[in-house]
Each structure stands twice: as C-alpha cells, then as structure tokens.
C-alpha cells in the first residue's frame, strides 16, 4: 500500500498554453518547443493525421484545451525501458509523444504522426490526455482506428467498453491531400459522451 498520499490534481486553467505551448499564448521563449513535432524524415511508418474537436455539455466548442498524445511506433514498440517486448527495438526517430492546443478560433487539435502498430493483444491505438479550464483531473482516453475492425474486435480494452459506447473511441478515416486523416471528436459530457479511462 502507498506510503505517501498523492498530490491532488488541479485544473490546468485557461492559460495552460503559457507553460506547455507558449507560442499559442502569444510569445516565443524556448528554442525547443517540446511536443510540437512528432516526426522526423527518418521516422518509420505510415504518415497519418489524428485530429478532432472537443465539445462541452452544451455542445459548445472547447477552444482553450490542451491535448497530449502517447503512442507506440509503427512496430508496436514504446520508446521506454518498461517496454520489454521481444522483437526489433523501438524506432530511435520516434518518441511517440506530442501536444496540441485546441485552436482558439476553430477548436481543432491535431497531430501529424504515424500509425502505431499493434501492442501485444491490443489493436493499434493512441492515448490522449486532455486538460483545460473546468477539468479538475486530466481526462485519459484512447483513439482506435476504424480501418482496424478485426484487431479492434479483439482488443481487450475496447471489449471492456459497453458496446453502445465503443464508437466514441473509434476514429473514422478519410483522405486529405493523400494523407489519411482520422477524425476524433471528444464529447466531455452528455449525448455521445466519450469513454474516459481510469488507468
């Protein structure tokens, strides 16, 4: 059992951009903007875009949120020592993490990334973590890919979700300028509420 009580979470507030993506707050301070770009030309895998909007319980766009993504590489490996899977090592040109603010005007967030591989019994997926004003503890969810029907049907996490709500975790695919775009709108509350995970 734990010895120390956890530090409580607190809302990221409306000015989260200053700390985590300062250019969106309106100033340039760091040479290296962490999480702004996930890929280099050397990164292996199919180039895709994952994007969406976030809606509140009144169906209004949430324009001040920050989204982080965490995912495996094209071979299903995580760039982390706890990944002790057998097989080829993780792609040295892919950290698997990025961050994006929802656009102040359009409310769209998005990541230019690569399609992750299967991780053990799990279908290809990416973790998302959402923080904003009015969100007291960051919300975790997963993006699955609509063109992975067979793998999705076997996925142990999706199978724990009640069937009527699974669609909230599965992003449809469309081509835009030759690049596959997976659309993943997030509903914080109410009809079609996204399944959020306590993991």
């Amino acid at each position: 059992m734990s010895k120390l009580p956890e530090t409580p979470s607190q809302t990221a507030g409306p000015y989260v951009h200053i700390g985590l993506i300062p250019r969106q707050a309106g100033f340039d301070i760091f040479e290296n903007n962490l999480g702004a770009a996930m890929l280099t030309p050397e990164t292996k895998g199919e180039r895709i875009r994952i994007e969406g909007r976030i809606f509140d319980g009144a169906d209004a766009l949430v324009r001040d949120a920050l989204v982080e993504i965490w995912q495996a590489d094209a071979g299903g490996r995580f760039a982390h020592p706890a990944d002790r899977q057998n097989g080829p090592p993780p792609d040295p040109h892919f950290r698997g993490w990025g961050r994006s603010g929802t656009d102040f005007a359009t409310g769209v967030w998005g990541f230019d990334t690569i399609k992750p591989g299967r991780v053990g019994p799990m279908a290809p997926h990416a973790s998302l973590w959402i923080v904003a004003r009015g969100i007291n503890t960051g919300l975790a969810t997963r993006v699955y890919f609509a063109d992975e029907d067979a793998a999705n049907a076997e996925d142990p996490v999706l199978r724990m979700v009640e069937p009527a709500r699974r669609f909230t975790l599965i992003a449809p695919r469309a081509l835009r300028g030759g690049i596959p775009v997976y659309s993943f709108d997030i509903r914080l509350q109410g009809d079609g509420e996204t399944v959020f995970l306590d993991v």
Binding site: D56, Q189, T194, L197, V199
Partner: peptide, 13 residues
C-alpha cells in the same frame, strides 16, 4: 466544471 465534467464514471482498468 458544470459543462466540462464527464457524467459517466471513468472506465477503470
């Protein structure tokens, strides 16, 4: 929090 808090419980796994 009124319009931004999920109303469904988190899925624990």
């Amino acid at each position: 929090t009124l319009l931004r808090a999920p109303r469904q419980p988190l899925l624990s796994l």
